[in-house]
Design a protein around this nucleic acid. Sequence first.
DNA 1: GTCTATAGGAGGATAGAC
DNA 2: GTCTATCCTCCTATAGAC
Lengths: 192, 192
Amino acid sequence: MLLAREDAIIQSVNRLLAEKGYESMTVDEVAADVGIAKASLYKHFPSKEDLAAAAMVSVMRRAQAFLDALPAQAAAIEKLRSVVRWTMGLKLAGEMPSLPSQNSSLRTALMESRDYMDGLMDLSDRLGAWIEAAQAQGALNPKIPPVAVLYTLYARACDPVLEFLKMGDLYSNDEIVTLVLSTCFDGLNARS
Amino acid sequence: MLLAREDAIIQSVNRLLAEKGYESMTVDEVAADVGIAKASLYKHFPSKEDLAAAAMVSVMRRAQAFLDALPAQAAAIEKLRSVVRWTMGLKLAGEMPSLPSQNSSLRTALMESRDYMDGLMDLSDRLGAWIEAAQAQGALNPKIPPVAVLYTLYARACDPVLEFLKMGDLYSNDEIVTLVLSTCFDGLNARS
DNA sequence: GTCTATAGGAGGATAGAC
DNA sequence: GTCTATCCTCCTATAGAC
């Protein structure tokens, strides 16, 4: 089955991207992990960049599905917190592909991918609406530009604090997520 | 002068690491940027990893010097804020080398570098003391483990939110620093 | 210590048979 | 669509003359 195989490929790419990052991941490794020849990989995806893009699209679809499943009547701020919690759980589970924010050839490949850009826009629009709602409801600080809030939430998906705390082995994954979620929304300062 | 040349090399490495990251930076580029032959580079530094390590040691020394220059009588929380502000300014200026948090061969090279590890320990100790002082003084939330605070502050040095906001071209560097500093210490939530 | 030239190898991508 | 075998570029590192 073609789709099943491509799904297996994407899953391998996802894991390897999370584990080693884009530059350190080799196509040979992906092929070995999937259990097929490298040339066969290239019949499914025309380049390494397309592999990475497919992985990104995959997690974005999962994110969209997660958003869909959130209770519609929940408060905007609670939906945002849920999404961030889910995102960080994904990263701690080694399922969040990490791309260099710098590599320009990869960036352009992503920006030329219709699936990726459409998904990103959709996600950003929906999160953006919740952010503005949460600000209007007095839950989020209205002085922070919504786009800055959005970026800050996105950034939790690749926060090195998560892996550092995990390496220290002092806290469970749940504790780490709670901790970082708290510093993200409540800040480091004492609340008076 | 040997030291001046090595300083020029480190400066180039610093800039290129900040711009492209470790994996995408090539030794040829460094040599071209410095204006010497690649073989000459290898007379100064035995490997690419050593180049990166030297760059990291260099910024760490700058950080230590910055800490030294802070007014001794200032409140701990203000010193911490100053350091983070300085760090983010460095990143926005393109002078903060960015290393992959994953590449294991580079990690081991760094951990075997006496200069790097000593500097990191010294920095962490001094920042850690300020963190505990700020918590005791009621400025920082005492419920957050000091090590989590330390990692959170370190993470500002490679926060993608900075570059995203910079790319948007809506805010000046100073505004970006102020914004991220605020979300870091005050959080995203509205303060009641 | 600087250069030119090159070794040595990894990795992305392809040819062509089945 | 899968394989084996190979191409070819790029990159780290070194040899050896000056």
